[in-house]
């Protein structure tokens, strides 16, 4: 056991090693971030003023470039006045891990700056509903079309050439149009998610459908299955697990369109929160919000993966990863 090499091509790792590496994959970036944040001689291109001394425009907690601080100190020294003191610091856009960790809690508990603004949890929830509707509408239409395209050559021929063209049009390009048609609120945002997801979805689902082993259809035919039975009793159940995997991947793509979608019309949701906090220079909150998107995405994917194993029991033996 101990002699199993770490690097053997295409050989699965033990559960213990898998777990260790999973943790390390998160720890490593955190470690680099911590090092840059806490070790004073690593990077830290700025100086935070502790005592302005006799430099006229320095104020306590002011961030200045190291160069500027040195020059000003020299000037005051030559004039024989009190020297300013300061600590090396990182730019404001790189908060330390503990600040971001704190922001995870405080950003939820901080009241919005203005009454018309939303709490963070409200913004997040708004984003999730936008994703939900955009993705659900796309799937309700895209999945059936994809399955039919993958099953019937005629359906494929009439859809796929146009979709193949349309999918190259960047979804955000339809922003202005979507606002003109659907107003400035949630409508155009859902539309952008829809446009970003739908066309890829049809192509991916039809491809997945085409990958179904044709001999299963032949076997069904020799067993006396008719046309509709082939579709509903063979094609659809046959591709379900792969279809589910496709949808998981596509859901991830839908999230990438979220930020653009939320900037269209009146900005809203988590994107509004991020831009707003950046404006106030609360970069700890900005980092926390970005990470929250990642955490929500990762968690929903893990939940869906577990759900998949539960609803497709025949896949359990085949899908060990």
């Amino acid at each position: 056991m101990t002699s199993t090499p770490w690097f053997a091509p295409r050989v699965a790792l033990s559960t213990k090693r898998t777990r260790v590496l999973t943790i390390v994959s998160f720890l490593l970036p955190l470690l680099i971030w911590s090092a840059v944040s806490y070790v004073p001689f690593l990077w830290h291109p700025k100086v935070v003023v502790v005592d302005p001394g006799d430099v006229s425009y320095f104020k306590v907690d002011m961030l200045v470039d190291r160069e500027v601080f040195k020059n000003e100190s020299l000037k005051v020294e030559e004039a024989g006045k009190t020297l300013p003191t300061g600590k090396r610091a990182n730019p404001i856009y790189l908060p330390a891990p503990h600040e971001v960790a704190k922001a995870f809690v405080t950003s939820f508990t901080t009241e919005p700056q203005r009454r018309s603004e939303q709490w963070l949890h409200e913004s997040l929830w708004h984003s999730i509903t936008i994703i939900f509707w955009g993705f659900t509408l796309s799937s309700l239409i895209g999945v059936p079309i994809g399955v039919l395209c993958g099953t019937y050559a005629a359906v494929s021929r009439i859809h796929e050439p146009f979709i193949e063209f349309f999918r190259y049009l960047p979804a955000p390009a339809f922003g202005a149009l979507a606002v003109a048609i659907l107003g400035i609120y949630d409508g155009p945002k859902i539309a952008i998610i829809f446009i970003g997801t739908f066309f890829q979805q049809v192509l991916i689902v039809s491809n997945t459908t085409r990958k179904l082993d044709i001999s299963l259809l032949e076997a069904a035919l020799t067993l006396g299955a008719k046309r509709m039975q082939l579709l509903f009793k063979v094609v659809i159940p046959g591709i379900l697990p792969d279809l589910f995997r496709d949808l998981r991947i596509l859901l991830g793509w839908a999230w990438t369109y979220l930020i653009v979608a939320e900037l269209i019309g009146t900005s809203s949701g988590i994107t509004w929160f991020i831009t707003q906090q950046a404006r106030y220079k609360n970069f700890d909150n900005v980092f926390a919000a970005i990470m929250m998107i990642g955490i929500i995405g990762l968690l929903s994917d893990i939940i869906l993966a577990k759900l998949g194993k539960y609803i497709f029991p025949w896949e359990r033996s085949a899908n060990k990863a």
Binding site: D213, S215, L216, E218, A219, A220, L221, T222, L223, G224, A225, K233, V234, P237, G238, L240, P241, F312, W314, A318
Partner: peptide, 27 residues
């Protein structure tokens, strides 16, 4: 094709999403 001629293929063409019983019930 029709159910009056049963066919057994070289590849295993059982429906993986059905149990043995449901596979046999398919036809």
């Amino acid at each position: 094709p029709g159910p009056d001629r049963g066919m057994v293929f070289q590849g295993y063409t059982l429906f993986p999403w059905l149990t043995v019983k449901k596979n046999v019930m398919f036809g």
